[in-house]
Amino acid sequence: MSDLSDIAHGLEAVARAIAGPEARATALRRLSGGASQETWSFDIETGDKSRGYILRRAPGGVALGTSAQSIGLETEAKVIRAAIASGSPAPPVAHVCTDADGLGAAYVMDRLPGETIARKILRDAPFEKARAVLARQCGAALARIHATPADTLPPLPFSGAREQLDRYEEVYRSFDTPRPIFDLAFKHLRDRAPTPPATTLVHGDFRLGNIMVGPDGLVAALDWELAHVGDPTEDLSWICMPSWRFGQMDKPVGGFGAVEDLLAGYREAGGDPRINADMVRWWTIFGSLKWGVMCLTMFRAFETGADPSVERAAIGRRASETELDLMLMLTGRL
């Protein structure tokens, strides 16, 4: 039941639950993007007032868990609520769907104004002011996310540096296709695996593409489905991973900023002052390795016939960009 009319029908009840018996759901449309979740935009009209909302829903309403690490939409909504209570910028959750809504696993959040497309944020004139302050703001946002009290969170998986090294090395070995640069990187990282100063809530996918940016800078962190408990340095580094710089390699933070600014913003907002550039570096190198393995995993969906699209085939050939970045980082050229 991915039909527009079925979704529209389910949202009528949701609109009444959010805004009262007179409320109506209108202007429903599917948004592009979000391979692992369906994202729909709609308005709720009450009298002459109208407000924008986003429906985030498991594909076809069935929560299959698109990756082993995905926490599920109900848990995701709880994490977002706890993170907002701690002062994190995230879209407020307006409604978590129940069976009675007939929408399957889903929740509704406020539709915030802003841009998520990386190339626009990095290049377009309306974001020039935002780009100047974004690294610092991202640091501050992550400090708030990491300060979310553990006792306000739903149960989440623990996944630190060693757990992730083990998991991604196992996946890589399962492909039985040698990529010596990956072997070199796994060994390099294993020999230097950091012990986190403390473990915290980790967003897990904080990068350009998953953050909403307006003319004044960061609006919200989106896509919380990979949230877990682990090393906070992971979040400060994933946005620095070379593939997420969208070609602007000389600006390590997302192609727009400097690591010093990211860490300064983090510390100013109460983030752990023990986290330093060397720790960010380890996780950035690991990020490239992880993304390389993830590209091959996504290609696997093509090879097994689960997703026969040309896009899934092509992504298997993006692992080499991470190998190049790994070599440049391991030889001090990036």
């Binding site: 070199l184 390699m249 050939r317 080499s320 960009e321 190998e323 190049l324």
Partner: peptide, 25 residues
């Protein structure tokens, strides 16, 4: 390091010649 870099550069030249990091090689 020379071997691994030369090998991956040849690959990226085929798979993604415009990739940003190629400028650092």
């Amino acid at each position: 390091a020379e071997h691994l870099l030369a090998t991956v550069v040849d690959r990226v030249r085929i798979e993604q010649p415009g990739y940003g990091s190629m400028k650092r090689v």
